[in-house]
Amino acid sequence: MTNLDHGKFTRMTTVFHSLLAMDVFFLFFTGYAIMFNDELWWMLTLMGGSGSVAALHRVFGVGLLALVTFWVLMMVTTDTGRSNFRELMPTPEDAKAFVQDIQFVLGNAEERHPNARQFAGGTADEIPLLSYVGKGVIFIFAAELTMLSVSGLLIWSKAGLMQYFATQTAAMAFVVFHGLLGVVMIMGVMFHIFEHGFHPAFFPVETKAFIPRSMIPEDHEDDTEGTGIEQLELSPAWASATNLAGAATVIGIVSVMVASIYDTGFPVSTELIIGGGPSNLLLTVGVNMGVLVLFLGMVLSVYGNLVRIRWEQRMQEEADAESVDVETAD
């Protein structure tokens, strides 16, 4: 029983996940340095000012367009993609899993529903490919990334958009819409980082997102009842790290949500408004804390890949040792 747990994803999926994560993190850093420039002025300056940040945002935008197109093609043109797509469909069990999760937290249920369980352990046969949260993440992120790509392309050339609507403020409406659309995604990603970085069995990162299932050994102990999580030792750092990260994530989500209400740009004001940012210290601290959570997510994504590289090396060493043994035996 290890916290490596059962493998779920192919190498294509794990590599895609890492590339998408990196691209989206940089899109967040550049995009929200512009949208929340009152609170994140230092990021704007650090990345070379508004012109440079807008150029970088476009570069990562091209990356996102390629990644989204690639994923759609993989889902449509391959048997594996099409069969996995069926497993993404929500079922009544997912609704039950959500209700049971609330009951579990309140102490009214002894277990999490298999459709909610992140650590499969000895119960891998009961666990679907994706939990109810996983399905939600894929649906919401897929819809968000598609709409962000389309709206991003629309505002690529603002002069064209202005000409089409015969007004400059219409272009601003699309820019604001694009930024507000990403707010759902930025809050969702903050939660995603907490969910997969701070599960006590996987802390500090759920490696099945980085190590492909082809590299994860499956040893079944038939005498183990349930997941067997009670055999795992909790990391000494888990409690304090989770409290800190949990608080930062909640503050980050709330602050970004509040900032999205105030830091808007449409309808375009006819007067100069000084708002948010240094004039509102709490919001500035909160939004920066949200960015810190995203940065933590980026670090954990890199760490997940570092663990994968170490694991690959170890597997290679074991394979080499085995081949030497066989040759010696011959």
Binding site: F191, P200, W238, G246, V250
Partner: peptide, 25 residues
């Protein structure tokens, strides 16, 4: 945002309960 906060608190609570069942450091 409110939905994400709800699911965030559910997971935080669930993680605490699961951690209590593991072998302690």
């Amino acid at each position: 945002g409110l939905g994400i906060l709800l699911i965030m608190f559910i997971h935080w609570g669930a993680f605490r309960r699961i951690a209590g069942r593991m072998r302690q450091p």
